[in-house]
Design a protein around this nucleic acid. Structure first.
Lengths: 134, 134
DNA sequence: ACAATATATTCATGAATACGAATATAAACA
DNA sequence: TGTTTATATTCGTATTCATGAATATATTGT
């Protein structure tokens, strides 16, 4: 069967997507977001990286239309547009000799008290918290 | 549930695999090989690239244990060790807005008369062919 | 032994990427 | 309005990668 599809342009298009997500900081961000949404301070707390560094990678992922952002006041929440990305990351984990379930287990963990966004600390709780790390 | 799995080393391990396969020349090679095996001149014929260029990428894929090689006289045949790699490439194609079936349709096409390896031109046919492009 | 063919490997150079530092922008607070 | 907080963006530099050119190695043919 003769096709009009040429391998070279096909693989270039596939490469465009894979090369956006394959740097490890971006994989970490995608896994950290998981199937929920997360804000930048959330990601800072989970990953322990500088805000500007995270923002740079968010910018690349946003530009590639892999992430969708939603602003709520000062906070910006990011969500993975297509869960197939996460599925692909799990498959890549399996290929790397890892248990794909570990990717799910890592996904969007509780960042703990370091993250004070409304998402993690609803107002009613925030008002009662002592002044920590301020 | 608290896990011992840290996102950062997990994503670094996944990145190791994804970064080996995500350059478009390597994707093209993996697709060209498909679920069969192919030799270097086969790939030359299909992809239209220089032999040394293809060999460099084959070396990287071999080093990452993604490809398995088999020598038959002068000819070296390459095969994709784990079909999950091809599955992942198909998924990446879908994410890139392509029809994953197109990846299968491209896989290991007939290279035509340019490839004279025993694989493509069994001896009985080779003996009867006129002297073309020699 | 030498030549031809198939393939692998190394090195140099230019391009692309990674990341830190600095700074800009937006929204809320005093 | 100015300050604070959350986040985005730009630029520079070091590092890594991509690829061409040259060459080395392995096998077969004469």
């Amino acid at each position: 069967m003769n096709t009009n599809i040429n391998i070279v342009p096909l693989s270039e298009k596939i490469a465009d997507t894979l090369q956006v997500i394959s740097p490890s900081p971006r994989l970490a961000i995608l896994i950290a977001i998981g199937r929920k949404e997360a804000c930048v301070c959330h990601l800072e707390s989970i990953l322990g990286w500088r805000q500007a560094y995270i923002s740079q990678h968010l910018m690349a992922l946003r530009k590639a239309e892999i992430l969708q952002d939603r602003r709520a006041g000062r906070y910006v929440y990011y969500r993975v547009k297509d869960e197939a990305i996460l599925s692909l990351v799990r498959d890549a984990a399996a290929l790397s000799g890892l248990d794909p379930q570990n990717v799910d287990l890592c996904a969007n963990p509780d960042p703990g008290p370091a993250c004070e966004c409304p998402h993690c600390t609803p107002e009613t709780i925030l008002l009662t918290l002592p002044d920590i790390q301020k």
